[in-house]
Design a protein around this nucleic acid. Structure first.
Length: 593
DNA sequence: ACTGCCTGTCATTCC
DNA sequence: GTGGAATGACAGGCA
């Protein structure tokens, strides 16, 4: 059996860190952790050490109990179970057999036996090696370390012997772990793990099971992963996986191409620079905090900078809101709330009915309606719509449009003709005409909104939930006319959709009623036919009954052999089939009575 | 010019 | 009380 030499050299801090990293890979990689800084990790290490101390005491107690129990047990070689000793007299021999059996079953136990280091000796050595101020150093929680010395002793390196033998008493395992806690053994173990890593590539058996994260999530970064295995505490990797993997993963592939040669010493700054070069460039004031939440928020801020709502671009363009000039008073006799049942936001895009010369191409004689029409509830903001609005609004709309949209408009409207005019010129079908007409109407409310420089789209005004709508309104300072128009647009739009739904429902009801009417007519015809058939059947049955009656009555004779007169007698039958000959006179008398 | 249809809007009721 | 859906009624546009 192998005899483990205990080198006299003391481990360096780097070795301890490396050992720490390695056992953490095995022990902790399964759990995601939001730790980025060493301080947090060190605190956690201290807490863990305290817990391990307590655990060690508890396990020591258990070991003593198990020792006492083992002293009373022997191994049943057939079942592999420990059974109570039957004969105390043969205790010595049995003890020997038990030991042999254990040796045969587990090399660890054999190694311990052969190592001539008892548990107490180990503990003493432990106490000597590590004074009382940091006793936890001697008991790292890498108790489940994947490569125990048994790997070298009796099992091949790739054998899944990392799992404990269920027959191995916990005390023995713990004793081994006590031994493993020695720095010398840790160094030896470190070398073994390095060999295993080199041989298996990357912690194949246990690493994948315990840390399915980075080796899979960072394809093509195997070299980096292996480097990180050595230089980066798994907490960092886990933290990246847990917190940022989704966010930064699109960049990881690029980063892997530019990965610098990571030095043997891990530096969070370099790590951040490595994975967040853009953010480093953006947030260049002071070092990045290692706190994941802060980084998330910074990322969110970064992300929130880029996407700009097209509506916002349009709505908050210079001069739209903050001009401070008095809003032109607009009057639009006909509203168009911009939405229908199947309307898409594009249908209500502003400027669709704009003429190229800058005037609005209202459909449905809107230009005529512009002259003036009865003012209803719109009167508060629809006093009179000055011509200034037409030019201003049109120019604004045109300028707000993207070049592509303007080109599209030009393509749709090559001449100064209104879109509606061209659309109505040669409509192939009436439905299409109506649709175009509806689309043309769609822009009117938007133009009203644009005229009053309302910074919302009609779609938003109409379709936002009440809370969001109120929130949106509260975020902008709108004057009375704008508020009235916005609420009118919302009311019109909702009522328009409601009217469309109502009419659709009404049509569906009509169709349904027609269908029901047809069904009822069919049912009526069927019932009439059935009635006729049954009437015919009844008539035939009556005829048959009459024939049968006469036949039976004619066969009846009185005591003189004469037939009964049908005028004086009649046949009657009861429900049970009994037939009676009843005198008609008597029956008449009975009836009269 | 009349008619029927479609659509938007208003007023009202109800939830 | 408010918001919104539902609906009848009305008006305007169009074919």
């Amino acid at each position: 059996m192998m005899e483990i030499e205990l080198p006299k050299m003391h481990p360096s801090q780097q070795d301890m860190e490396l050992i720490d990293i390695l056992w953490r890979q095995d022990v902790d990689l399964g759990a995601g952790r939001e730790v980025f800084d060493f301080s947090y990790r060190q605190k956690e290490v201290e807490l863990r050490r305290q817990r391990e101390q307590e655990e060690e005491k508890r396990q020591q107690h258990l070991r003593e109990q198990e020792k006492a129990l083992l002293a009373q047990l022997q191994l049943d070689e057939e079942t592999g179970e420990f059974v109570p000793r039957s004969l105390p007299a043969s205790g010595t021999l049995t003890q020997t057999n038990t030991t042999n059996g254990e040796i045969a079953q587990n090399g660890a136990f054999a190694a311990q036996e052969g190592d001539a280091l008892s548990f107490d000796e180990c503990m003493q050595l432990l106490a000597e090696t590590f004074p009382l101020d940091e006793p936890a150093e001697s008991a790292p929680p890498c108790l489940d370390v994947s490569v125990p010395p048994t790997t070298d002793l009796m099992m091949p390196a790739d054998t899944p012997a990392f799992t404990q033998n269920p027959l191995l008493p916990g005390s023995l395992d713990q004793a081994w772990m006590e031994l493993l806690s020695l720095p010398e053994l840790q160094q030896c173990l470190n070398m073994q793990m390095q060999e295993t890593l080199n041989m298996d590539g990357f912690m194949k058996p246990s690493g994948e099971a315990q840390n399915p994260s980075y080796s899979q999530y960072l394809p093509g970064m195997d070299h980096l992963s292996s480097v990180q295995t050595e230089v980066c505490p798994p907490e960092y990797i886990n933290t990246y996986d847990g917190s940022f993997n989704n966010m930064v993963s699109p960049n990881l592939s690029q980063m892997s191409l530019n990965v610098p040669d990571v030095g043997a010493e891990f530096r969070p700054e370099e790590f951040n620079e490595l994975f967040y070069p853009e953010m480093e460039a953006k947030v260049n004031s002071g070092p990045l905090t290692s706190d994941g939440g802060n980084m998330v928020s910074q990322l969110a801020e970064t992300a929130s900078d880029s996407p700009v709502n097209p509506m916002d671009l349009q709505s908050f363009s210079p001069g739209n809101l903050s001009s401070g000039k008095p809003e032109p008073i607009v009057e639009f006799p006909d509203s168009d709330s911009g939405l229908s049942l199947d309307s898409s936001p594009h249908m209500s895009s502003p400027g669709k009915s704009l003429n190229e010369d800058g005037s609005f191409g209202f459909s449905d004689s809107d230009s005529e309606e512009m002259d003036g029409s009865p003012g209803g509830t719109e009167s508060d903001y629809t006093e009179i719509f000055p011509l200034v609005y037409l030019n201003d609004g049109a120019q604004t709309s045109l300028s707000d449009k993207s070049p592509a949209e303007q080109q599209e408009m030009k393509a749709k409207n090559p001449k100064t003709e209104p879109v509606e005019a061209s659309g109505y010129s040669k409509p192939p079908f009436t439905k299409d005409k109506q649709k175009k007409r509806s689309e043309a109407r769609l822009s009117r409310d938007e133009q009203r909104a644009k005229a009053l420089q309302i910074p919302f789209t009609v779609d938003m005004i109409i379709n936002l939930p009440v809370d969001d709508f109120n929130e949106m309104m509260s975020k902008h300072q709108l004057n009375e006319a704008q508020l009235a128009l916005v609420r009118d647009i919302r009311r019109w739009g909702k009522n328009k959709v409601a009217a469309q739904n109502c009419r659709k429902r009404k049509l569906e009801n009509i169709v349904g009623l027609e269908y029901e009417l047809d069904s009822l007519r069919e049912e009526k015809e069927r019932l009439k036919k059935e009635k006729s058939e049954r009437s015919t059947s009844l008539r035939e049955m009556k005829q048959q009954l009459s024939t049968l009656y006469q036949e039976v009555f004619g066969m009846l004779r009185d005591e003189h052999g004469k037939p009964f007169s049908p005028n004086e007698y009649s046949l009657q039958h009861t429900a049970d089939g009994t037939v009676f000959l009843v005198p008609r006179l008597k029956k008449t008398l009975v009836k009269n009575n």
